[in-house]
Amino acid sequence: MKSGPSPFKRLKRQLLASPLDVLITLLVLALFGWITATSLHWLVVDADWRVVSQNMPLYAFGSYPSDQRWRPLLWIALLIGLTLMTLLGPRKGWLRKALPLLWIAMVPFGVVLLAGGIGLLPIPSHAWGGLSLTLLLTACSGVLALPMGILLALGRQTSLYVIQRSCSVYIDVMRAVPLIAVLFFGQLLIPLFLPMHLEVNRVLRAVLAFALFAAAYIAEDVRGGLQAIPRTQHEAAAVLGLSTQQTLLLVVLPQALRTALPALTNQAVGLLQNTSLMAILGLVELLGISRSLLANPDFIGRYLEVYVWLAGVYWLVCTAMALLARHLEHQLSPTTSATAKR
């Protein structure tokens, strides 16, 4: 676009060149104005936000016992803190080096905090809920699914026929079945495979089913990354005397995962949003707790408020994840052209 004399004049030329342009511009402006005005009016005047403001602890923690709520609160606060530190914190030093470990540690830490044991009062999983449960489901299933997905992708590439076929079949079957069906199967089938006395709780069953499902998609993303690596990289590693395993861990996977990262970010965001399906299984994560609030006679009919609020919360978390992923992408390509030129 040419840089005209002034932005104002350029606007005028583009939007008000002929009488028809003027008419269209005015109509579009009027439509925007009307939509904005009615939305704002509803947001500020018509909407009754008590269904949100009075139930903040429920959205955050579900029916977690109130004297123990500091535990999920601490976990969420640490997550927010880590996010801020990653995005805005110092670029160098020991803190930056410790970040990956801290992030990984957050998953078991969250489980221990919420479930209890080790000196903490045990809280049964049916009392977990709200945002803390949503985040825990996402984190746990993601952490399980990623290594499974990588192994599946590698399995699909191996020359061992049986392993290669079974990985392919697994991936194809999982991708052909809707997630909700996998989740129901998980709830109904996993207990059948286990001995009677060993009861796996509902959250764990959901996480397992979820991870098994996501792994198939992750495997395909990783495969894309693996295929992007030229054969010559294997040769270079081979002539240096690296073993097959070393080549994989030191040369191939770091590059493949870096290439697959944008697609993996998509999976992570999808994972978070798909946890809302677990409301149908009776888990009271964000969507579940909202549905039970809407069943409360005090807040009858406040659908719009609740769902607008939910959309806001999901948007915020997804944005944070996207920012973190972009940051990671940047960290892993010290030169922007590092992957472009090979």
Binding site: T232, Q233, E235, A236, A237, A238, V239, L240, G241, L242, Q246, L250, V251, P254, Q255, R258, L332, P334, A338, T339, K341, R342
Partner: peptide, 30 residues
């Protein structure tokens, strides 16, 4: 391969490693 070095037409350096890491990878790991 432990006693024979090779240089390729397309260099085949590892793009995700710094120059120093490219060179020290095999001495350290192998």
């Amino acid at each position: 391969r432990k006693r024979v070095g090779m240089v390729f037409q397309q260099f085949n350096l590892f793009p995700h490693l710094s120059i120093l890491d490219n060179i020290t990878l095999a001495p350290i790991r192998v």
